[in-house]
Design a protein around this nucleic acid. Structure first.
Lengths: 115, 115
DNA sequence: AGGATAGGTAGGGAATCACCTACGCGTCAA
DNA sequence: TTGACGCGTAGGTGATTCCCTACCTATCCT
């Protein structure tokens, strides 16, 4: 039983499929947890739009919020990204093989016995 | 000059944000290059819908097609996935730190000198 | 209490998505 | 050459995305 259903993966990848949201993650990574206002300063869009992006990130589990007075401090939550890396893992040999010059061998052969 | 613009990243993540397309990638990874028909057998949807998914994957650079008679053989192209892994890399310490019990330290400190 | 500040929600509009059916085009086989 | 097969494209529909402006709530300050 994997805790990561297909719907959760959808949400994470969809959340990452937007430059604004990836930029939010980068800001939280490089400068630590921040209030919405501080984040909003880096974007041209209106704040309600950013709020929606933050909601998408929250629902994907990529950020968490903590109330502090009238501020909401957003923090990076990397667990879903770790799961993305796990998802990526079985594909690794496809680019490693290719870099080594073995390329177009395994991936050209149908039924290469992965099961 | 990075060959991966933000639009290209958008396309890759958006392509991955769909269970059918991720399943296509898995099939190509586990069973090698395949014609559309063989892929279509694994899904309930009509073939034209699958064709559109294949177009999305193609435009993201995740698959390539090679004509063979009246068939189109689709092959996994892992290069964009390697770039996803590169994108992921600076986030790694966030889940590694947390696993080690160092968690909530670096990522709670603003301005931890990443630059 | 009254005003300013932080940030979310409501609702609308253009664009895109994900599915469908109908059809067109190239290839192979009789 | 006629017909079947493999696969893409056209075009339509309902749902979702991403932006906006308005508005609401909660907190802080005086």
């Amino acid at each position: 039983m994997n805790a990561t259903g297909t719907a959760a993966e959808d949400r994470v990848f969809a959340a990452l499929a937007n430059a604004t949201r990836r930029e939010v993650l980068r800001l939280l990574r490089e400068r630590g947890p921040q209030a919405v206002q501080a984040l909003a300063d880096h974007f041209e869009m209106r704040r309600p739009s950013l709020s929606e992006h933050l909601r998408v990130l929250r629902e994907a589990g990529l950020v968490s919020e903590q109330r502090s007075g009238r501020q909401r401090i957003y923090r990076l939550e990397a667990a879903p990204l770790a799961e993305v890396q796990d998802w990526l893992h079985p594909y690794e040999r496809f680019w490693r093989d290719r870099l080594r010059g073995l390329g177009d061998l395994l991936d050209r052969m149908p039924d290469d016995g992965e099961s």
